[in-house]
Design a protein around this nucleic acid. Structure first.
Lengths: 169, 169
DNA sequence: GGAAAGTAGCTTAGGAGTAAGCTACTTTCC
DNA sequence: GGAAAGTAGCTTACTCCTAAGCTACTTTCC
């Protein structure tokens, strides 16, 4: 806890200590804050993307296509598994993005079951601007820590995340 | 990055470096992992609560009432603001929990607009078991770190979260 | 080369949240 | 003490997701 002011998570832990002193709440110190941080930054980033007419989920689709490099083409199947989304959910996102002319669907020439999804000019322009704005918001939030602390935090999170994935089944 | 194996977030950062070398992606090292960790642990904890017949959101309602101490009574208004939920969303959660007989709604004796929500015997028993099971799952995940690292991580997250709240408007 | 198994994307039904608007009640303030 | 403003909880319409099931096509394997 060091010399820091108590935050909302500390307050919750204190409440539990009062009514259930038998509980080991140390894991809450970490995960309680992870949940809150995820939600708070998620909401903030959502607002940053809004002027571009896209939601966070739609940003993720465009960003995945952008990262793939030219010709900015992937299958719906790959997109939905990368983004951990059901195929039904991906159909909906692609419908919306296609309606906004940010991407287009075309038949896969090698597999007649499949489609190809490709970023349009407009989609490329939107994601290239939005990704910068989103990163700027996250960088600003991270400035609460100095470079060494940020590096430490990233390393600790990597270790924790790796452990989490391993025991997943 | 120290001497760790690359993870999925590192892979994404490498992809961005290849197609957009101008971007400063350091904030992703932290927030990318925060998002993933939040989702992964959220999913896992959801499975832990399932045998008790409650979702994560419903757990949060019961836990908030439990932490309040006897007589385990709060208003819907306080619950929805504490859990950052609209009143409509809270109405739905309370409906479900009341149907399952885990809590009961009664008129507020001091304010005829308002209600009181109170944990039932059954609700108290359920939350007292579920909270232990949820903490056990989180403690197990945290065992990827030693005690010192876990403490460091909690401190860094507290600082980052405090900074995030401040600049929220 | 033809049956069986697998895979791709879409559709439908249902769950849980938000935003906005409603009624009922309470507080404020002249 | 009565009008205006504020607050509590619910309802409705809508969004976006999942789970399950569908058709169409491809791969596997005898």
């Amino acid at each position: 806890m060091s010399a820091q002011r108590k935050d909302a998570v500390d307050a919750i832990i204190d409440q539990w200590a009062a009514v259930r002193p038998d509980l080991d709440t140390r894991a809450m110190e970490v995960f309680g804050r992870v949940y809150r941080l995820s939600r708070a930054m998620g909401d903030r980033v959502e607002k940053v993307y809004a002027p571009y007419g896209i939601s966070r989920g739609e940003f993720d689709v465009l960003a995945t296509l952008r990262r793939a490099g030219e010709p900015y083409t992937l299958s719906p199947r790959l997109l939905s598994s990368t983004l951990m989304l059901t195929t039904g959910g991906m159909t909906g996102r692609l419908d919306k993005l296609e309606r906004a002319a940010l991407l287009r669907r075309s038949p896969d020439p090698h597999d007649r079951r499949g489609l190809q999804v490709t970023l349009t000019e407009k989609g490329l322009a939107v994601i290239d601007e939005a990704v910068g704005a989103g990163l700027a918001a996250q960088t600003a939030a991270l400035s609460a820590l100095d470079d060494e602390q940020a590096g430490q935090l990233a390393d600790l999170l990597r270790t924790l995340l790796a452990g989490t994935q391993d025991s997943a089944h």
